[in-house]
């Protein structure tokens, strides 16, 4: 099962490092990653595979939200299907 992680906020040192560490600790594989500056904001989109994750989707989501709070960023994780459904026929 794939999910999309989005990170939005002010650029700073260690965003990718801390998000990927959190994923590594839960055995979540990063499939694709892109980052850019959109309207002055740092934005990062990660496609991850959560099939072999050592914890539940909800726990990962909570951990990412908490990390976002600590780093003053907005971090979300959502199942990939919602984006597919809305933007592809």
């Amino acid at each position: 099962m794939n999910a999309v992680i989005t990170v939005v906020g002010r650029d700073k040192v260690g965003i990718i490092a801390r998000v990927s560490t959190l994923l590594y600790e839960r055995n979540i594989n990063i499939l694709d990653l892109s980052q850019t500056i959109m309207q002055g904001n740092f934005t990062m989109v990660m496609l991850v595979d959560v099939s072999n994750s050592t914890c539940s989707f909800a726990e990962t989501s909570d951990a990412l939200t908490k990390l976002g709070h600590d780093m003053e960023l907005t971090i979300r994780i959502q199942r990939e299907e919602i984006f597919d459904a809305m933007h592809t026929i």
Binding site: V4, L31, S34, T36, T43, V45, F83
Partner: peptide
């Protein structure tokens, strides 16, 4: 991967 713009359009 799905277009970044589409991802952020959905979130918006």
């Amino acid at each position: 991967m799905i277009d970044q713009k589409d991802i952020f359009a959905t979130i918006d």
